[in-house]
Design a binder for these strands. Structure first.
Lengths: 221, 221
DNA sequence: TGCTGTGAATTAGTTCACAGCG
DNA sequence: CGCTGTGAACTAATTCACAGCA
């Protein structure tokens, strides 16, 4: 499981790159040809120096006094993120969350294509989700010999997340977006990103209260 | 929009607190009465020193040589996160993602209760989602005068996210979990957490490729 | 002895500020 | 000039390492 940054690129930088890419796509639709770091800050809320620093990890993409070519930068970032060509993605877990992700158009925008959906629940297997038929998890390894997806979304209950993730690794998956609230123990050459709504809501619960207490502190003057 | 840490508690600490709380709930069900930081590390993958440091921002909860009382620590953390009593939560956007969140049991486990669902789409308004009826967004301010929810989940398209978020603030919401891929511009006393699947997938896309290149580097010997 | 709590050291990430190019 | 690219300064977060209590 990749935790350390083997290379020297900060992980938050990679996330922001995806944001820049989305904005560049939009600008290209609006036929804007050039953009400055200050305009990117305006659009994204990300500090202009941060934007320039993020790009500096990968090379020089702008022209001093002018800015960046929208189309060139768009292509450069897509290439960095390996989103310059279709990426096959697997989904395991056809529950509420899995179904919602099938309809998520952000993936198509970034050329990630859901190519296989798997579940262990017999009542789900065989049903259609979008254009894909839900397959048995037992077929996963075999099916991915053809698909060759390296990225998977894991949206299964916590109890089975570890064992399913091991099947994914066996099937050749190198990167997993994990929605289960448990840490996956996997070989270190497999990248894992955990998404936890509960963590986010807990932070907000604390912060919502924090603000109130600050207000009442203020009001007490 | 709260970005800065007004107090000195790191935001990642708050997220991890939610993880500890979940594990403590489980231990309590198993009737385990005492736990050490090393055992927490075992369960969560979070470094034992990190766990102790996280707690140290809020007080002293353990006994040297013994560990922590599961039930006491559970209550203490719940109190810190304001999850020691029911928290009302609003959901705006009854699309795929919103529907999936309705079925998410992690919320109930942490005493967060979805109390109102809103949408602007006339074909959605009036339909049932779980036990709740989807209401018009125009009723939001009025409805929340009774509910008094301070936390909301924003699962609407990017184009309307800013204006809907302003309605939430007008209705008294102080904390927003934002699934729209745009930065919300809101008063600084409103906390916002952004969730972006695309960012996570982009990071993974990069890392999946990175690992491959490392492997091939290795194979080339 | 076995654990916690925590300053100190370290590592990671962000922002500044400015040299230098177009 | 107006912008980029980037070392240097700063701020944030993690991990170490150990003193001290039960």
């Amino acid at each position: 499981m990749v935790q350390e940054n083997h290379s020297k690129v900060p992980i938050p930088t990679l996330g922001r790159l995806a944001t820049y890419l989305r904005v560049l796509n939009e600008l290209q639709m609006l036929e804007v040809s050039t953009v400055s770091s200050a305009e990117i800050e305006q659009q994204t809320g990300i500090n202009a120096a941060q934007f320039r620093k993020d790009l500096s990890y990968f090379g020089e993409f702008g022209k001093p006094g002018v800015g960046y070519s929208v189309s060139e930068l768009q292509q450069s970032i897509a290439k960095i993120l390996k989103l310059d060509r279709r990426q096959a993605v697997l989904l395991v877990g056809a529950g509420n969350l899995g179904s919602a992700l099938v309809g998520y158009q952000g993936m198509a925008e970034h050329r990630m294509e859901l190519m296989g959906i798997f579940d262990s629940n017999p009542s789900k297997i065989g049903t259609m989700l979008g254009t894909l038929r839900v397959q048995s998890i037992h077929c996963l390894v075999e099916v991915n010999m053809k698909l060759n997806a390296r990225i998977a979304i894991l949206a299964v209950p916590a109890q089975v997340a570890q064992s399913v993730s091991e099947i994914l690794v066996e099937a050749g998956v190198r990167a997993i977006l994990n929605f289960a609230p448990i840490p996956l123990r996997l070989p270190e050459n497999v990248a894992v990103r955990n998404v936890s709504f509960m963590q986010e809501l807990a932070v907000l619960s604390y912060q919502a209260a924090e603000e109130v207490s600050q207000l009442s502190e203020f009001e007490s003057f």
